[in-house]
């Protein structure tokens, strides 16, 4: 007989038990045979395949149905999908990790930024920094700067989401939605951007302007379609 059934109390929170899950904290009723090797192996296999199914379902919806994941979440259908913050963090880490090997295709490439620096202040600052680092070879120096830049921007982008959500709150003020609802929309939008950029990585490496052009187009279309689904046809 399970320990908690004897005591009629949840092992985690001490709440009186009704059924196999604690209605207060969700803890499953404990059976000692759960630690039997055969049972435990089955449980591990189930957990792994269950998470896989969740990931697949979430990513499929994120890519093929703009805004649907947010709509589902806002309707309270959360269980079948990965939570927005977890999805964002996982995709963001994967993104910055994969792009750290291909710094030329990364979000911020100092060599590309140099071409668009009309103030003329970037080159002297870079030269001074290179001197400071003991005259590191150009290739190594740019790679190191790109890595530092992308590490910084990964944190700053996370902060930017809170500002993006505020912009949504202002633009869709008539919709009378909570700030966090906009935040969830933005987390899904950014998650899509990371996923798309990872899929576009070969294109970025082959032809960067074409890759950026396509990324811009997909962002605008995706933004439009997901806003239409989540916020309705009118602002």
């Amino acid at each position: 007989m399970p320990v908690e059934q004897k005591n009629k109390r949840c092992a985690s929170c001490g709440e009186a038990l009704v059924g196999i899950y604690c209605y207060d904290c969700g803890e499953k009723i404990h059976h000692r045979h759960e630690f039997a090797l055969a049972h435990y192996s089955r449980e591990i296999i189930y957990q792994i395949t269950h998470i896989d199914a969740k990931i697949f379902k979430t990513l499929q919806l994120l890519v093929t149905r703009p805004g649907r994941l947010t709509a589902e979440y806002l309707l309270g259908r959360k269980k079948p999908y990965i939570r927005p913050i977890r999805l964002y963090l996982a995709l963001s880490m994967l993104y910055f990790f994969s792009f750290s090997f291909f710094d030329k295709a990364a979000l911020l490439d100092i060599r590309l930024l140099l071409k668009f620096d009309f103030t003329g202040r970037l080159l002297p600052a870079l030269q001074a920094k290179q001197q400071l680092l003991g005259g590191l070879a150009d290739e190594l120096f740019y790679r190191s700067i790109n890595q530092q830049l992308n590490n910084k921007i990964s944190l700053l982008l996370f902060l930017a989401i809170f500002i993006y959500a505020f912009v949504f709150k202002v633009i869709f003020v008539a919709k009378k939605r909570y700030y966090v609802e906009h935040l969830i929309f933005c987390l899904h939008l950014m998650s899509f951007s990371f996923l798309r950029d990872m899929l576009f990585l070969p294109l970025y490496l082959l032809h960067k302007p074409a890759g950026f052009g396509l990324a811009l187009a997909t962002t605008v279309v995706y933004l439009f379609l997901s806003m239409k689904r989540v916020y309705g046809a009118r602002v």
Binding site: L157, Y164, M227, A233
Partner: peptide, 30 residues
Amino acid sequence: MALATVALYAAFSAIFGIFALLAIYQVLLA
């Protein structure tokens, strides 16, 4: 909705630009 998309995209780009400048400043000048 199309106008809102353009406005939001412009706002996103501007915010990203500011953060990119901030990152460059922190890496090179700070």
